[in-house]
């Protein structure tokens, strides 16, 4: 059986047979990789640490017919700060679940990997969860070619001078005139400016943005709607985050 190595971030792990886990990684070299790891949960397992969510590892894998097999791994970076805050943990899980749901095995995107890793590092460093999550989702949508139109009206393509509305079916923001023909959610100036900003600022520099928490949440809500409509994803971590919101 052919073997390969890859650098990857653990997204999810689910129980399989006995002490085995099916682990989903997002790797720089091969994109999403799903592999079986054995002996997890047994004391002394050398793989237990690396199959934990958000661990960055060098992975040694054997290609299988259905699933690959993780034979060895070397932990490169762990983020013990993430479970220390429930909100950070929730948003990191949301990012991991989104990545797993929106990508296909074997389609490598080093840019997405770099953005994913930078986002997890930013969360571990204490950046605002909604901000990091919105920035990451926008980057992912951009790479998938379904980013929301933010600079102009998604229907008439005129520059957005006045109030703007979000319409998922139109593919982004629309002007008041075009909204008259259908529905749309009003988007505040702050959230709109933030969405523009998030496209240009790397995750590790989000701290420099002057953002009000409600603007960050509004921007994330818009991105969530866009994800739901264009990728058709239902994320389980959404319910967890809802429980945390005041």
């Amino acid at each position: 059986m052919p073997t390969y190595t890859a650098t990857g971030l653990t997204l999810l792990a689910r129980k399989f047979k006995g002490s085995q886990r099916v682990v989903t990684f997002y790797t720089r070299e091969r994109g999403k990789v799903e592999a079986v790891a054995s002996g997890i949960g047994k004391p002394g397992s050398s793989l237990a640490g690396v199959v934990e969510p958000f661990a960055l590892s060098r992975l040694f894998l054997v290609q299988g017919r259905d699933l690959d097999r993780l034979t060895q791994a070397q932990a490169l970076e762990a983020f013990p700060q993430i479970p220390a805050s429930l909100e950070t943990y929730g948003y990191a899980s949301w990012i991991a679940e989104l990545t797993s749901g929106a990508t296909e095995p074997g389609q490598a995107s080093p840019d997405l990997f770099d953005f994913l890793l930078a986002s997890v590092r930013a969360l571990a460093a204490g950046e605002e969860g909604p901000l990091v999550a919105a920035a990451y989702a926008l980057a992912l949508l951009e790479l998938l070619g379904v980013a929301p139109v933010l600079e102009e009206c998604a229907v008439c393509r005129e520059a957005l001078a006045g109030p703007a509305f979000y319409q998922a079916a139109a593919g982004g923001l629309i002007c008041a005139e075009c909204r008259a023909t259908g529905g749309g959610i009003a988007v505040g100036g702050g959230a709109r400016g933030l969405l523009h900003g998030l496209r240009r600022v790397p995750p590790e520099r989000l701290r420099g943005l002057k953002v009000r928490p409600e603007e960050a949440r509004e921007a994330l809500e818009l991105v969530r709607r866009h994800l739901g409509y264009h990728l058709g994803l239902t994320l389980r971590s959404e319910e967890f985050l809802r429980q945390l919101s005041p």
Partner: peptide, 11 residues
Amino acid sequence: ALSPLAGVGPA
């Protein structure tokens, strides 16, 4: 245990 990915929250 709390697990956003399994839909287990504090409640």
